[in-house]
Amino acid sequence: MPKIKSKWIIIGIIALAVLWAWSGYNGLVSKDEAVVSQWANVESVYQRRLDLIPNIVNTVKGSAAQDEKIFTTLAEARSKYAGAGTTNEKAVAAGEIESALSRLLVIVENYPDLKSQESFQALIAELEGTENRISVERRRYNEEVKSYNTTIRKVPRNILANMFGFDRHDLFEAAEGAEDAPVVDFEE
């Protein structure tokens, strides 16, 4: 009689452990997926910025042809982003595009004619919106990563995370002032 009883207790405990591991594992998977899909959102707004650059360059080039260096820098940064594979590489390349863009905008300050063009102002409105979208999606990405990283490090889920190889995701660090979008402000 006692033997049978302890057997059932053991089976019960195992069943509970399996159930816990099951739901815990699934929870980790959804959190991991949330990070991945939020990174996809970040990439799509990066792409939006990339698509905008040729238009800006074409508009600016007409008036500011002598500042040729910035256009090559921008083009290089762009192709670097296109060639980037990992999340980290992409983040770095995006940072370079960002600083190149801010420099371009500083240069534009010297060309009042350009600034008053309607087509240029429309482009700037687009760029402003895009930069703001990037900072929003990036913040959300960081929030997802923080929540995921906390979960996989906390007892008892850290056991599961170790067992199934859930690794930390990298936060989007502010690289050379990349945290703040380039300030696009021509109204002052």
Binding site: N41, V45, A125, E128, G129, N132, R133, I134, S135, V136, E137, E187
Partner: peptide, 10 residues
């Protein structure tokens, strides 16, 4: 939900 689209002015 919004994703930062729009515009600001003063």
């Amino acid at each position: 939900l919004s994703g930062g689209g729009g515009a600001s002015g003063k």
